[in-house]
Design a binder for these strands. Structure first.
Lengths: 248, 248
DNA sequence: CGTGCATTTGACCACCTTCAATAAAGGTGG
DNA sequence: CCACCTTTATTGAAGGTGGTCAAATGCACG
């Protein structure tokens, strides 16, 4: 059921590459939950999934809405967030290739998901996915594993939000993004790609955009980072960045 | 392998009750992960679990330490927390009867766990638990389900820590505790039992003890709560409490 | 009844927010 | 390709919420 959507990386088009149409050719097959499935098993995932793309700021799902699908990120960057009635927003996380969202039950999605840049998602019926757990026990185990990793990350995030100051928060964020950068992509090791706006970063860290901006300036003045133009910044002193991030 | 440890509820001794020694008699059987297992299946859990108790402030496990066991809370109240090198602490959660912790992998426990009051735990080998997933697929599914619920709670907690003010934080906490009170225990519906110290509450909400104390006073002056003596407080206006908690 | 710890209350201060202005970046049409 | 407009980011000044420091009160336990 997979469409032949045009694949593109989060850091630029890979024009000329053949568009994958089935799970066995999926560009994130080895880094998602599907990594535990062999060529035969993965065919069963093709049968329950399809391919869907969104443009910047398009909404994939909304907090509270009935959760019919679960999503794997193939390319791009997704933000998942929660809001208070008066509009205050908390970004729960930024998701990249290989991450998933929309699994949790309880009568509806517990957060909203929006595209930050062009994204390509693998969408699968939650109902059919749960059926597949019976046939593919390793899949359920893998998802449990990934969920537990997400819980660890969530605990780190609570420590950050509850107990770190503005500088430590931003350094933690940059340090984490540097780790993600190292895995994926095509930019130098000492640079990181930040597709999200200052407003997104602020709502992720529990700060205002002004405070985030000021802290960027301070880190640049301290020669810990350098502000490249566009969506990348340069990490001049990753060692010190991590030290500040952990609170000395 | 279960010992015949003396069972006691978090709200008082149940002296004279027979001490359960096997999982089929477990006092939290119906509210834990084990609720999905029938009498035959649950025998396999008895074989891999034992019973262990701790006194107030005793440490069950420590952040970073190799995770050999996983724990179900039978009675009492456990705090799980993370610390920064300089001693700043964030409490990730308070766990009560039916909750579990210590499942997550990744080379060690991702947080510390300590008893707040006398606790009784069901301890099981992680290794053997994972083996049981093969034989008891419903168990793995149930744990995945509970993990996803924990992830939803974690997202709520991030919204609280990142975007709510002191008053909203405390009201959120009291509202959540009221929900837990409603499930379990032997105290009236309009009262809640708070076994944890002001310091614990502060470190849970990302505040100081002084701020927590001041907010308690304000809520009492506004006739939203009444400060009973000892570890209970009275909720005079749950409606308004919830309204403040959600940010209007 | 005195000691020790937890909690409450008070006064002051700092970090981050709010409000406001300026600068830079991005997109559209001439 | 540049002018114009909109959006986003930076910088500045003032204010407030919650933190820090300190003292007083309450409470449990010997």
């Amino acid at each position: 059921m997979n469409s032949t959507a045009h694949m593109q990386s989060s850091l630029g088009n890979i024009d000329g590459a053949p568009a994958a149409s089935a799970c066995n050719l999926c560009i994130v097959r080895k880094i998602t939950m599907c990594s535990v499935l062999n060529d035969e098993e993965i065919q069963q995932m093709s049968d329950i999934s399809d391919d869907i793309s969104y443009q910047p700021n398009e909404v994939v799902c909304t907090e509270g809405e009935t959760a019919k699908y679960m999503f794997n990120v193939r390319s791009g960057c997704v933000r998942i967030s929660k809001m208070l009635p008066d509009g205050r927003r908390q970004i729960i996380g930024f998701l990249f290739a290989g991450d998933f969202f929309g699994l949790s039950t309880g009568g509806g999605h517990s957060y909203s998901a929006e595209a930050i840049i062009d994204i390509n998602l693998c969408r699968m019926s939650r109902e059919k996915l749960f059926e597949n757990f019976k046939k593919l026990p390793s899949l359920g185990e893998k998802i449990l594993d990934m969920s537990q990793a997400n819980l660890n990350d969530a605990a780190d995030k609570m420590l950050l939000l509850g107990r770190k100051n503005a500088k430590e928060k931003l350094c933690s964020f940059l340090s984490a993004m540097s780790k993600k950068s190292a895995q994926n992509n095509e930019i130098p090791d000492d640079k990181i790609y930040l597709p999200m706006s200052r407003s997104d970063i602020a709502d992720f860290l529990g700060l205002t955009i002004e405070t985030v901006s000021r802290q960027f300036t301070i880190l640049a003045n301290d020669n810990i980072i350098a502000m490249d133009k566009s969506p990348t910044i340069e990490l001049l002193d990753l060692e010190r960045l991590k030290l500040i991030a952990s609170g000395e």
